[in-house]
């Protein structure tokens, strides 16, 4: 067994993988929530659609995206391996379990993670898969008058099936033709069931990160009397409150305000 293999097969090594992939996913959701805030701009999805197009067509981002998918899978797989191993460490449980000081979220990371994984499958099936691999998402054309800055939009039907996007300037008018993911979003968020799934998932995300963010630091051994409270504060307020709230606000906003 090579030394690296030995390292990552140890109990601590597996936790290291969990921590590193977890923290990477944390950085991803910062980007994700930042981009998605464009959904709140009142531009008929122009900004959002351009952003979605950029993410799917800029090669370095595409590489990162594959690392991201891999991280999600590895994070989930190792969680499964660790859970099985941990179950084996105590095959016979206790008859009486008292309330302990350990936080609820820390004891239910597996459950929370499973909810999130299920959500990610639904979420990606809805948007990412349909956006990339089907023709279900229609195209839109945005014409911006560069003199006045005014944008108008209209439906666009590409001539060839291979068409992905285009940007051109004609007569001082910029013409952007992209897939209209925004319409898809608005459509999906019109369904109360989807809204509920999203809100519940964001609740799970909140609790998952409440424990997960600071736990990753502990696993990495980055604990310090002076800095650990800051990590806790970031984990609690930024990752467990602000981000999930921002995400959850999107379907709620579309359901109640945009329709």
């Amino acid at each position: 067994m090579s030394e690296f293999k030995q390292t990552f097969n140890s109990s601590l090594g597996k936790k290291l993988i969990m921590a590193l992939t977890g923290l990477f996913l944390c950085t991803f959701i910062i980007v994700h929530v930042g981009g998605n805030l464009l959904l709140f701009s009142n531009d008929n999805g122009f900004g959002f659609n351009v952003y979605a197009n950029f993410l799917t067509h800029f090669p370095p981002i595409e590489v990162v995206a594959y690392i991201l998918y891999l991280s999600i899978l590895v994070h989930a797989l190792y969680a499964l391996i660790l859970t099985v191993k941990n179950r084996k460490a105590r095959p016979v449980g206790y008859a009486v379990q008292a309330k302990s000081d350990a936080s609820w979220s820390s004891k239910n990371m597996g459950l929370l993670g499973s909810i999130l994984f299920l959500f990610i499958v639904i979420h990606m099936g809805d948007f990412w898969f349909k956006y990339k691999y089907t023709n279900e998402v229609a195209f839109k054309e945005y014409r911006t008058d560069l003199a006045t800055g005014q944008t108008t939009e209209s439906a666009y039907t590409p001539a060839s099936a291979d068409f992905s996007h285009s940007v051109s300037v004609e007569n001082n008018v910029e013409i952007v033709r992209v897939k209209d993911l925004h319409a898809r979003v608005a459509h999906t968020f019109g369904n109360i069931w989807y809204v509920l799934i999203y809100v519940i998932a964001m609740g799970a995300l909140s609790f998952h990160l409440l424990h997960g963010f600071q736990s990753a630091f502990r696993t990495l051994g980055w604990v310090h009397r002076k800095y650990t409270p800051i990590v806790y504060a970031i984990g609690t307020w930024f990752f467990a409150v602000i981000i999930p709230l921002a995400f959850a606000a999107m379907p709620v906003y579309y359901f109640f305000c945009v329709r």
């Binding site: 109990s11 601590l12 597996k14 936790k15 660790l82 191993k85 941990n86 084996k88 460490a89 105590r90 302990s100 000081d101 350990a102 936080s103 820390s106 004891k107 990371m109 424990h211 600071q214 736990s215 502990r218 696993t219």
Partner: peptide
């Protein structure tokens, strides 16, 4: 033994 999940119990 199992792994630590930093629950603090």
């Amino acid at each position: 033994f199992g792994s630590c999940t930093n629950t603090g119990a």
